[in-house]
Amino acid sequence: MMENIIHDYLRPKKSFPHVWCPGCGDGIVLNAMVRAIHSLGKSKDEVVFVSGIGCSSRAPAYTDFSSLHGIHGRALPFATGIKLANPKLTVVVFSGDGDALAIGGNHFIHACRRNIDITVVVINNNIYGMTGGQASPTMPTGAYGATAPYGNLDRPFDVCKLAAAAGANYVARATAFQFFQLEKCIKEGIEKKGFSVIEAVTPCPSLYSFFNNTGRGVDMLKKLRDRAVTTQKAATLSPAELEDKIVTGVFANENFREYCAGYAELVEKAERSKKNEESL
């Protein structure tokens, strides 16, 4: 019998259906994350699920892990504190494109730089869904939003390039349609010692679709399916052919020193030098 594992992880007293719109990708990404954790055999108490503010940031409220639903853009500082205080915990963060890259943009790059052993899933729907459809830092140039009635002037961030350049140990991207790949990436991210960023490209069938006429969730998932190419395939395509594509796969898999390990070494060093001073 195949198991829909998520039914073992839903918070007992929480009422369902959840708040996300019909066809929204957030539920799919949450399901993939839960399966990744389940496959690693971690208990619910070993995992702390942290988020900031936004549609996707409501995820920790629905699952029965230790959880913290924090403030806008500040999921990573909270998560950093939790991990440093108790490095044995597995800390997973859900953050939207606005939460991670605009409001929390600085926290994001510096968490990558520190390379602390946290896994952040950036749920990228290219728009501020909860607050009315404003242009987010990943909205494509020319796309429409509440703050971009004549088309977005800005260029979007490439989440993966940003994270890799800032020093994260593990960086990967998958679309919500590529469920099993997404699950695998999240699993690898959690297993990886160091900071892991998994960009999950998701549909927003409500506001993004309202401003850009992209249809229902089903239509947007089909589009994601058709636009996704692997890194290997992308290497054979010209820039023109790549224009509308979403390159998926692993973009960084490094072994830079992890922050908690570095911190433990530093404490030891400080204690040694203190002892030396005392013996003088």
Partner: peptide, 27 residues
Amino acid sequence: ECKLCISLCPDFAIFSNPEKKKDYEDR
């Protein structure tokens, strides 16, 4: 049993285990 439906359903609304379905009967 490719699991695609229970994976892609954004609302966790598809149950594949009769026991689990019972657990959630009144929710």
